[in-house]
Design a protein around this nucleic acid. Structure first.
Lengths: 163, 163
DNA sequence: GTCTCTTCGCATGCTCCTTGCGCCACCGGT
DNA sequence: ACCGGTGGCGCAAGGAGCATGCGAAGAGAC
């Protein structure tokens, strides 16, 4: 794993191609960015070794799987002691419904993004898990009505060279 | 593409394995869930054809790429006319920094999740792009201080059979 | 000009994917 | 109890893809 990465245009295009389609063949990726399959393989291995590619994942369809609700939950801690923060951290780590959890600026301390089958499960999550937890003081949940855009792609075009 | 999907335990385990590692070999996946590579391949193709797997993506590392800021932006529209909503939809669709955009319950109309290199770019996004846009009335952004959890895996264990 | 370092494409041995095939376990009807 | 149908399974083989050794070509230092 090299310490300082310097990416050229080909690397960026390869990263873009792979975050678009993670199962691209070196051959296909090579055609797309203008490189031979072998060189494509080498560059991809280098990008993985450099830690720029953190993994490959299948993106599943939530709706047909019966996970119909996407919810953002703002959480305020009871106290801001180190212990409390640690307990809360462990809690969200354990909860499978919580896809993402961030410490934020603004009103609430934390923002959670959770996926649940329906309102009943949301109620259970909030009332039976989050609120009773010793570390939590207040909870405010907002339900997603419509998904306008949902991509996990990083804006690579915004990068100045040598990022 | 079959209309009604009925998943058994093997399908669910395969989905779980693939959202964990999207580049799993049919052989590797088979070992993990207890199935032969050929059957694994068949089930995977079926899941893809059924639309339960929406794609495979490389997960890139934002930080070393110079994308140091993750931001949530709450947006309130000027008017709630259909035209305005459509204009806003086109705007967020165009913006590469905006990874996700949702219409929400709660105070604000929309919640955006955006990735930018630094505060300068955030200011540019808010002040030069969002706020001047005709459809937008108010904008409130919250910066992510720390990422406690960041996985895009759906909670498959929460599913009742036959989802 | 020459030397060196890097990056490239080609060739190749090895792994992996997919699909045809036959087998078996289960099920409903008689 | 029997039996034909159905669906899911593993095996095998042909074709595709991956990674790496190798030589060639270009950039930069002096």
């Amino acid at each position: 794993m090299q310490e300082f990465v310097n990416l050229d245009a080909l690397d960026l295009r390869l990263l873009a191609a792979l975050q678009e389609d993670g199962r691209l063949t070196n051959q296909q990726a090579g055609e797309r960015i203008g490189l031979s399959p072998s060189q494509c393989s080498r560059r991809r291995l280098a990008l993985e070794a450099a830690g720029l590619i953190r993994g490959y994942h299948a993106e599943l369809a939530a709706e047909p799987l019966g996970l119909k609700l996407l919810v953002f939950v703002q959480v305020t801690l009871a106290t801001h002691s180190r212990d409390n923060a640690q307990r809360f951290r462990e809690l969200v780590g354990r909860l499978e419904e919580v896809q993402e959890a961030y410490a934020m600026t603004g009103d609430a301390d934390y923002l959670l993004k959770a996926v649940v089958p329906d309102l009943k499960d949301l109620a259970a999550l909030v009332n039976d898990v989050l609120l009773p937890h010793e570390s939590v003081a207040r909870v405010r949940s907002s339900i997603v009505l419509e998904r306008l855009k949902e991509s996990h792609r990083l804006p690579l075009k915004a990068l100045r060279r040598g990022g």
